[in-house]
Write a protein that binds this DNA or RNA. Structure first.
Length: 436
RNA sequence: GGUCCCGUGGUGCAGUCUGGCCUAGCACGCUUCCUUGUCAAGGAAGAGAUCACGGGUUCAAAUCCCGUCGGGACCGCCA
């Protein structure tokens, strides 16, 4: 008999069906045993006889039975399938599960982070953990759809790269035959080259950072949602675009992830269009006025400043999203375009959401000579950037772009306290699948 | 790289400050039994811990001190 999915069973009252999935939970009343079966569409209650007593949580089973409407008193309003149940006539065990290292049958998965990650194949099966990655899928997908809708072309960036792309940041070296190469810390140079090909481009790719950062918001490998566009009329086109993409992501989550948000009692960030836009200096004045902490003249916002600014933006403008612009040249990479009015500042921005950087971007230098001069000024050898520089030698339009950290957006949307929860198999200084 | 906090059955915690009443407690899970309407099912009984490891102080250490290892949080840096 053809397989019916759990959610489809509600449309088959009175019919005989076959279901397949995992035993999510068992409630044993002796001669009457309830099994919660879970498949990719959700949970459904099976009503079984004594033969179900042998089943363990996470056994994989196929059952045959009849879909019955539940009596008024027995309806479970918390389950989408809660108005029906399946009276089982036959159980086949497709695979047995060993005893679980922790209880996975409760609404809250009550384990600490190291346990959560040490048992990733199992913990990922918990509905609340699954939900994180449904949301992440929606984020990545709506990033794609939004940009495709704006005539952007998706491309695949390489991960093995010849040299350090952004100066100071730490990279992972790889042995490359008898030579040395690196894992890319960003698709930056390639997406700029691709602007010379398709004008408006984006990529969903992995970025690798070997920075010795042990915090709740850093990963050694993360998903970077990168885009770049040519023929800017004004650099603020980028802020408009970042805003559109962010709203597209919110829409994608809203349309596809209501249940997932509910599991975390999460709401999408509040925002006002346009998102408030503050120059770094203005933001620092605000921090000073609001908290008395004098950060004026610092070259960047500290994590504490970012939280304070977001709090201010929420209070003052009802927006949990806020742009910070015009970071100093000294804090930005060689390709950042200087502000013509104030060359010690760049046409660059961060988008903060709920107290954390989600997005970084800006206009880039598109003139060959200026770029070569800057590479030298940053202490690099233009020879190492020969391929990249070709694009500029042969004509590049004014352009710019930004990168969104997919795990950070996921984390901040759901209110997770550690970014590792928002990464399927997180890599950090002490972990590559297992603790190293 | 720097600062701070924490290591107690399979999991999550209490007990540590103020050493002795700890023969280490609770919840979940697990085992056996009972249970025909549960959906975090319920009831009864039971197994399971050299209190991270090593050293020290003391009549006495899960508890105080030192070291090692492991984990977590924050800063710098960044998405």
């Amino acid at each position: 008999m053809e397989r019916t999915l759990a959610i489809e069973a509600i449309k088959k009252i009175g019919k005989k069906i076959t279901l397949e999935g995992w035993v999510y939970n068992r409630r044993d009343h002796g001669k009457l045993i309830f099994i919660d079966l879970i498949d990719r569409t959700g949970i459904i209650q099976l009503v079984c006889g004594e033969d179900a007593a042998v089943l363990n949580v996470q056994d994989v089973i196929r059952v045959e039975g009849e879909v019955k409407e539940r009596g008024e008193k027995n309806i479970n309003p918390h389950l989408p399938t809660g108005k029906v149940e399946v009276k089982v006539s036959k159980i086949y065990v497709l695979a047995h599960s060993q005893e679980l290292p922790f209880d996975i049958t409760k609404e809250k998965l009550d384990v600490e982070l190291p346990t959560l990650l040490d048992y990733r194949p199992l913990t990922l099966r918990h509905p609340k953990v699954k939900a994180i990655f449904r949301v992440q899928e929606a984020i990545v997908d709506s990033f794609r759809q939004t940009l495709k809708g704006l005539d952007f072309t998706e491309f695949q960036a390489p991960t093995i790269v010849p040299s350090v792309t952004e100066g100071g940041a730490q990279v992972f070296p790889v042995e490359y035959y008898d030579k040395k190469a690196f894992l890319g810390q960003s698709p930056q140079l390639y997406k700029q080259i691709m602007v010379g090909v398709f004008e408006k481009v984006f990529t969903v790719t992995k970025a690798f950072r070997a920075e010795p950062s042990e915090t709740t918001r850093h990963l050694s490998e993360y998903v970077s949602l990168d885009c770049e566009m040519g023929f800017l009329e004004d650099w603020t086109d980028l802020l408009d675009l970042a805003e559109k993409v962010t709203l597209g992501i919110f829409k994608g989550i809203k349309e596809n992830c209501q249940e997932e948000l509910a599991l975390y009692s999460a709401t999408l960030p509040a925002f006002k269009i346009p998102f408030p836009r503050l120059k770094l200096r203005e933001a620092q004045e605000i921090v000073f006025k609001e908290t008395g902490r004098d950060v004026r003249g610092d070259s960047d916002l500290s994590p504490e400043d970012e939280k304070d600014i977001c709090e201010w933006a929420k209070k003052k403008h009802g927006s949990e999203m806020v742009f910070i612009t015009h970071f100093p040249t000294s804090k930005r990479p060689f390709y950042a375009h200087p502000d013509p009015g104030e060359p010690e500042l760049t046409l660059s921005f961060d988008l903060l959401g709920r107290g954390l950087e989600w997005v970084t971007g800006g206009q880039r230098i598109h003139e060959y000579d200026k770029l070569v001069a800057n590479i030298k000024k940053w202490g690099n050898d233009p020879k190492d950037f020969e391929l990249y520089l070709q694009a500029f030698k042969y004509g590049m339009p004014p352009h710019g772009g930004f990168a969104i950290g997919a795990e950070r957006v996921t984390m901040q949307t759901l209110g997770l306290s550690n970014i590792r929860e928002a990464s399927l198999f997180p890599r950090d200084m002490k972990r590559v699948d297992r603790r190293i």
